[in-house]
Design a protein around this nucleic acid. Sequence first.
DNA 1: GTGCTTGTTGGCCA
DNA 2: GTGGCCAACAAGCA
Length: 274
Amino acid sequence: MPEFAEVEFFRKRWAQAAAGQRIKSVELHPAAKIFRGTSPAAIRRALTSAKYLSSEAQAKQMLFRFSGGAWVGVHLGMSGELTVRPAGCTPAKHDHLVLHTPKHSLVFSDPRMFGRVQFHHGPAAPAWWTKIAPPILSPEFTIEVVAAFLKRRARAPIKAVLLMQERFPGVGNWMADEILWRAAIHPRRLAGSLKSAEVKTLWRECGHVCRLALDTIAGRGNYLPPDLNAHIPRTWLFWHRWEDGGLDPRTKTPLSRAEIGGRTTCWSPARQKL
DNA sequence: GTGCTTGTTGGCCA
DNA sequence: GTGGCCAACAAGCA
């Protein structure tokens, strides 16, 4: 489920509850596929009595830093969630990792188990974290970089290209559709066929959608919305893409859906032409 | 039972 | 070697 801004929402939720807290105990599901590649026992050992220090979100990943050089990376996959429950809560069926602090329990749950928890021990952040592509909202995400990437992926539909994390970190299915809808570009257009004015619009809308999503979904400053979608405006494609008989919120004309780039894609034929 | 699902990866093929 | 496509992963929901 979670893309760019939703990942930041979940990070913030854990971070607010964990601020200044020390972990009393760790409960985890040793058999869960979530822990691919890292040892659940090592996580328990390193985190028990460790103090939460800081955290960051990047692309679709999060990294939580604890005292003693312990780092926990989280990728939510399709159905992962981070929640905060009352102290001492008992793990439910799909709760794979629970960090108990004196005030709260921090829970990672994921029914489909496409997510993962990665553990790292050392003075600096792990290599997999530092090699994530530069954020869309950073100065490195230039129009030239985007144009060069579209050229390299010239024969793939633009929808599929937007989903490539190596260049559009954090963009997932709904954000890709939202960006293309705002840019008035048909998702089936081949990346190499875009005119330079279209590339410019696409680049600009990548930034807009990321910025707006971050503000409305994760909230500004210390404010955290009560739930993920609480403040998403009805004027976004977001609310209409799955509705039966859904209408383009701008033109009030019918939306279309089809599988493009292996994913269900929604667009507005009135605005987005082949 | 059927057919979906906001993600990623590895294998196959041109 | 590069790039594009697809199935697989797994569980819940309508």
